Amino acid sequence: MIYLPVTALLFVLLLLSLPFLWLAIAFDAVQLAVAKLGFSPTAASVLLLMVILGSTINIPLYERVSTVAIVPDFEELWLSRFWGIPLRKIQQKTIVALNVGGGLIPTVLALYQFTRVSPLGILLVTLIVAVVSYYSAQVVPGIGIQMNALVAPLTAAMAAILISGGIAAAPIAFAGGVLGTLIGADLLHLREIERMSAGVLSIGGAGVFDGIALCGLFALLLT
């Protein structure tokens, strides 16, 4: 009986420490992954901080104005169908932006790998991941693009290993995974999202949890 309070206290302390343990594991994983890109642990820490802070910053690229019909009620639908009265329409404005933490920084790191490893290998992996991402991604109205988080990283890792023969597979997988996801899942579906969504459409807008950054990180760890 005398050990019950102590056990309960240790259990509570364990629950409270879980977020810190998760952060420590995530930080070590990022350091390990970034080291494969040729950066020191100090540079990895700086990059992680930049990604976290940059996830709050969106750089506007352009805006698109489109005309959409308002969802009609029964009376408007009846008048439109039988009497030819047009439905009411409104103009909606969509601002397309690039998120610094989830889009810009991973893309810059991916482009930097062209100077370190085989450009042809990166281009081939990018092409493969772009095709897979395009057909795997789904555009959900009001939400955005949804895709299984492991599809692109697994594709990038396997393609990089096969194409490179295991030589410098990690940076090739990272660069091809990031660029392929950006092109296949985001850019090639951009027009569809513009027609469905009003407001700010941010590429990489989920910051460190966005598919672009996650794909690069997972691809590194898997190789």
Rank of each mutant, 00 (worst) to 15 (best):
residue 1 M to L: 13
residue 49 L to K: 05
residue 103 G to F: 06
residue 215 C to W: 00
residue 151 V to T: 15
residue 39 F to D: 02
residue 121 G to N: 01
residue 149 A to E: 11
residue 174 F to C: 07
residue 73 D to R: 05
residue 189 H to G: 02
residue 179 L to A: 07
residue 71 V to N: 05
residue 27 F to C: 09
residue 150 L to W: 12
residue 202 S to A: 15
residue 55 S to H: 06
residue 126 T to M: 13
residue 143 I to D: 04
residue 193 I to N: 01
residue 69 A to T: 10
residue 112 Y to T: 08
residue 3 Y to K: 10
residue 166 G to Q: 09
residue 15 L to K: 09
residue 77 L to W: 13
residue 176 G to C: 08
residue 219 A to S: 15
residue 209 F to G: 07
residue 53 L to A: 14
residue 205 G to I: 00
residue 171 P to A: 08
residue 71 V to G: 00
residue 34 V to F: 15
residue 82 F to W: 14
residue 12 V to E: 10
residue 54 G to K: 07
residue 21 L to Y: 13
residue 145 I to E: 04
residue 191 R to S: 12
residue 144 G to F: 06
residue 108 V to K: 05
residue 115 T to L: 14
residue 125 V to P: 01
residue 122 I to F: 01
residue 204 G to T: 02
residue 55 S to M: 13
residue 221 L to C: 01
residue 201 L to E: 00
residue 118 S to R: 03
residue 215 C to G: 02
residue 181 T to M: 11
residue 33 A to H: 05
residue 165 G to W: 12
residue 154 L to E: 06
residue 74 F to W: 12
residue 23 L to D: 09
residue 6 V to Q: 05
residue 156 A to C: 09
residue 165 G to H: 08
residue 123 L to I: 06
residue 155 T to H: 05
residue 169 A to W: 00
residue 136 S to A: 15
residue 177 G to H: 12
residue 193 I to L: 08
residue 101 G to H: 06
residue 183 I to Y: 06
residue 103 G to Q: 09
residue 1 M to W: 08
residue 38 G to L: 06
residue 173 A to C: 13
residue 100 V to S: 04
residue 70 I to Y: 00
residue 79 L to Y: 13
residue 215 C to N: 14
residue 85 I to P: 01
residue 113 Q to V: 07
residue 23 L to C: 04
residue 17 S to C: 09
residue 147 M to E: 12
residue 146 Q to V: 15
residue 104 L to M: 14
residue 199 G to M: 12
residue 199 G to C: 10
residue 125 V to M: 00
residue 122 I to L: 04
residue 88 R to T: 10
residue 50 M to V: 11
residue 55 S to A: 13
residue 75 E to T: 15
residue 44 A to G: 13
residue 212 I to F: 03
residue 81 R to V: 09
residue 194 E to M: 12
residue 43 A to W: 12
